[in-house]
Nucleic acid binder design. Structure first.
Lengths: 245, 245
DNA sequence: CGCGTTCCTGTGAATTTCCTGAGAAAGGGC
DNA sequence: GCCCTTTCTCAGGAAATTCACAGGAACGCG
């Protein structure tokens, strides 16, 4: 088994060259599973815990580089877990999972230390992107990877959310942005509509699968318009992005 | 390559090139947590103590470059702690945390020696800025940072609180100033409303998240009025500031 | 060449997100 | 204590975004 990620992109690695370690703390087994699989697929090492006690134990043994923490847990409330995690892992960034309306009720100071949060229901693309951002900025990983994705003359900046083709700025909506980011993080690789739906849309999306077609169509209009096309259809298989000739 | 903080800003560093050390003395664990997280994220090394005895011990071992001291502590009152800290660390600047209604003249006496204070409830932006100012002026750290933030033709002086666009002075209220400072310390970077709220508003703020929208609106009126806009909305993501073209 | 399948995209409606005016409440300076 | 400034809530309205639906185009296969 090689250390290159399944998707073949440049990975974030720890200073000693080993894989980045992520601890997932969530009591919903299904969610925990979903996250673990997605993160392993990123090439990261994952451990998960279903309650606060397990989380603290895992933190001590596993010494993760980042934590994903659902702030509503059964035995302790998430904030208590956070406190105990912090004692074990003072400098480790935390990505919080929270219900959408909880944000309005305000969880003061959660993101204060450079941490971040994602509201449920989330898309995997969002979680992975946020987590990569956290790790990148935490300095725990060696690779100060750029926040800039480049495919041919197309660029996408994950920090500023700026997208340009051939130097020209292109305005994308939030969903278009996430779709393009997913494509660009997997250049020259066919992604099926099911994969895209699983990754870019939130896990509870119940709509028609052809939203993917629709959004591919939107992207083409904005990105390929006139120019040599970069987004290609593989009939019966999916879509891929690659530099135009 | 210059050393940069996690957020990519220039850091304050000590003469030997190591990170600045800050001691946080506060008995409220939650506050202590919040501060530690924020300061670590600034790239500083943090130790915290929950009482006077611990503070003195930490001072002796840790030799901090600055101290944040809550002047109401359980075992000794803050003034006694201060005295003993001063014996350990004669020249170290202290940032006091105090209740708003604390006796004014007493504070005035305390801060006479170049120290500073912040009233509770505070915003992290304010604490970090004050602390940076203290450290910068104390000479303990190599001054590698100006107090002037510049983005395009917009400037903000953290010392004098002067803000100018294209040379013209602009009057901002306290909140507007802190918001703008946060944006300008993270140029070209999308900041979510939650992040902004966590950082610019005080930790006990319980209000509506749309104050952020409101203050962005105020800032635009004062800063972007007529001119090419520098504050941009990323719908569904947040706001960012960048030089106009 | 004809046919079924797959994909593309215009239209429009529901929803979400953002902006901003008006005014109440709180705070600061004198 | 009084006046002026600042902060913040509330709510209406504007605008952008998401998505379903459906007709038509393109494709691949026999």
């Amino acid at each position: 088994m090689t250390t290159t990620s399944p998707q073949g992109r440049t990975e974030l690695l720890r200073p000693d060259g080993t894989a980045v370690r992520v601890l997932v703390v969530d009591d919903e087994a299904a969610l925990s599973e979903l996250l673990s699989m997605a993160l392993r697929y990123e090439g990261w090492e994952v451990r998960s815990a279903g309650d606060g006690a397990g989380a603290v134990r895992a933190a001590r043994e596993f010494r993760p580089d980042a934590v994903i923490l659902d702030i509503m847990l059964p035995d302790m409330d998430g904030l208590a877990v956070l406190g105990r995690l912090r004692r074990e892992l003072p400098d480790v960034p935390v990505l919080f999972l929270t219900a959408k309306d909880a944000v309005e009720d305000r969880i003061a100071g959660l993101t204060a230390g450079g941490d971040d949060y994602v509201t449920k229901p989330f898309s995997l693309e969002e979680v992975v992107a946020r987590l990569r951002g956290l790790i990148r900025r935490s300095g725990s990983a060696t690779v100060r990877s750029e926040s800039l994705l480049v495919v041919g003359d197309l660029t996408l900046d994950e920090d500023s959310h700026d997208v340009t083709r051939d130097g020209v700025n292109i305005h994308l909506t939030a969903t278009e942005f996430e779709l393009l980011r997913y494509l660009m993080r997997n250049p020259r690789r066919v992604l099926s509509k099911a994969q895209i739906l699983d990754r870019v849309w939130s896990y509870d999306f119940g709509g028609q699968a052809n939203v993917v077609e629709l959004y591919i169509s939107y992207l083409r209009r904005k990105i390929d318009a006139g120019r040599s096309p970069m987004i290609h259809t593989r009939r019966g298989a999916g879509y891929l992005i690659k530099p135009g000739e």
